[in-house]
Simulated scan of single mutants.
Amino acid sequence: MTWLPLLVLAWLERHPALLVFAFGYLAVVLVPINFGWGVHWGGRWHDAPMLIIGGGVLLLGSAGFGLAQRLRRLR
């Protein structure tokens, strides 16, 4: 349920890029993407692929927003 705070933050900040990112992250979280990983893992590691994909999207998004902020400061 980490997508809800992102949507609230985008609404509070009125930042269109953050809103687009929040909806993109929502799509990634709601669509079960596993590429066949974890099918045979079972147990507590069954959710690992979705956690890796969701965490990777958040990490890349934060890096992108950080880079955009740094480039804006250089102008």
Rank of each mutant, 00 (worst) to 15 (best):
R44Q: 14
F21L: 00
A17I: 00
G61L: 00
P32Y: 07
L71E: 07
F65D: 00
L18H: 07
G38F: 01
G38L: 02
V29P: 02
T2N: 07
P32C: 03
V28Q: 02
L30W: 15
G36Q: 01
G42F: 01
G42M: 07
H15E: 10
I53L: 04
H15W: 01
A22F: 07
A27L: 12
A48I: 11
A68W: 01
G64V: 03
Q69C: 02
P49S: 04
R72D: 11
A63V: 08
L71V: 02
I33C: 09
H40N: 11
L12V: 14
V29C: 09
F35T: 07
I53S: 02
R70G: 00
L74H: 06
V39W: 10
R72G: 03
L58M: 14
L9Q: 08
A22V: 03
V31I: 13
I52H: 06
L71S: 03
V20H: 07
W3C: 10
L67G: 04
G64H: 00
Q69P: 02
R14S: 13
Y25F: 12
R44M: 14
L59P: 00
L67I: 09
A22I: 01
L18Y: 03
R75A: 14
A27C: 11
V31P: 04
P5Q: 08
V31N: 08
L19I: 03
V29K: 15
A48G: 09
L30S: 15
A17T: 05
Q69D: 13
A10M: 13
W3R: 11
R75S: 08
V57R: 02
R72N: 11
L6M: 14
L6K: 01
M1T: 14
G66Q: 11
H40A: 08
L6T: 00
E13I: 10
L58V: 08
V57W: 03
V20M: 06
N34F: 01
R70C: 02
G55E: 06
F35D: 04
P5T: 03
I52T: 07
G56P: 00
M50E: 13
L51H: 15
T2Y: 13
